[in-house]
Design a protein around this nucleic acid. Sequence first.
DNA 1: ATTGATAATGATTTTTATTATCATTTAGTA
DNA 2: TACTAAATGATAATAAAAATCATTATCAAT
Lengths: 148, 148
Amino acid sequence: MDKINKKEFKNTFIKCIEEKGLRYTKQREVIVDAFFSAGRHITSEELFNIVKRIYPEIGYATVQRNLNLLCKCSLAEEIKIGKQKTRYEQKYGNTHHDHLVCLQCGRLIEVNDDKIEKLQAKLAKKNNFTPIKHKLEIYGICADCKSK
Amino acid sequence: MDKINKKEFKNTFIKCIEEKGLRYTKQREVIVDAFFSAGRHITSEELFNIVKRIYPEIGYATVQRNLNLLCKCSLAEEIKIGKQKTRYEQKYGNTHHDHLVCLQCGRLIEVNDDKIEKLQAKLAKKNNFTPIKHKLEIYGICADCKSK
DNA sequence: ATTGATAATGATTTTTATTATCATTTAGTA
DNA sequence: TACTAAATGATAATAAAAATCATTATCAAT
Ligand SMILES: [Mn+2]
Ligand SMILES: [Mn+2]
Ligand SMILES: [Zn+2]
Ligand SMILES: [Zn+2]
C-alpha cells in the first residue's frame, strides 16, 4: 500500500515535471522519494539532512527549489507556524485538514470538522467573498503535555 | 468618543509601562498616539513613516521595539499573513475576530462567527487539547475585486 | 552515439524582516 | 541637582528564503 502510493506520488511528480517541460534528475528522484517517506510537516533543512545521507553531493538550494516545485505540482504545501521555519505538508492523497498546535512541544495534530468547513463557506458567502483556501490553527496545550 | 478611547488606550499603555518599571518617553507617546490613530493592520514600517513626520529624529528600532512592547501590554497583536511583513492589530476595546484575506488586493476583512468559535472549542476538547488562541484566515477574492 | 540547446545543480551571495549591540542620552527619583 | 538604569538611534547581526552564476547534465534531434 505504501509502495503503491509512493509510486503514484512519484509518477504525479514526473508527470507534472514533463508538463512543465522540465527535466527529471537523479536529485529530484532522491528528493521526492525522501519527501514521501519522511512523513508530515518536514522542514527543508530536515529533508536536506535526510537526502544528504543518500546523495551527499546534494546542495541545500536544490532541496529548497524542489520543495517549491513540489508545491507548484500540488504535491506539497507550505505550513507557516509563527516564526518557525516553513514546514512542508505532503498533499497527494491527503484530504484537507487543519492543525492543533501545541505551544509546549510544538506538535501538530491534524483535525477536520465538516461543520466548521461549511460555516466558513457560509461566512465567506455572507461577505460576498469567494473563498479559495483557508487556514485554521488552534494553539494550546496537547493531551501529552498536559499529562506530564 | 474617539478621543476618550485614545485617552484610555494611552493610559493603559502608561499603566503597563509603570507596572513593568519602565519609562514613558516622548517617543513612546508619539508612537502610541500614531498607532492608535493609524487604524488597523499596520506594519512597523508604515508606522515608522507616520511617526517620522511628527518626530523626525525617531529611529526604526524604537518603533519596532515599542510595537513589541504594545503587544506585551496586550494593546497590539501580531498578524502574520503568508510572507508579508508582520502587521499589528490594535487590540484594546476590540473583540476577537478572524480575517478574510483578499489574494488580489490584500485587504483584510474582519469577521466573526460564534458558531465557528464554539465548534472550535468543541473540536479541541474532543482531542483533549486545551485551546489558548486560534487563527482562522480565509483566503480568496473580495467583493470589490470581483466587481472590477 | 553525438551534438547542442537549455534546464538543473551547487556554491555563494543577496535580500528582507527582525532582533541584538552599544555608545550616548534621558527619565525618574532621592 | 545628581545618580542610576532604561531608552534611544545608528548600526551590525541573524536567519530564512530567494537570486545569481559558472558548471554540469538532460534529452530531443540528428
Ligand atoms: Mn498536517
Ligand atoms: Mn483585524
Ligand atoms: Zn504538546
Ligand atoms: Zn480584494
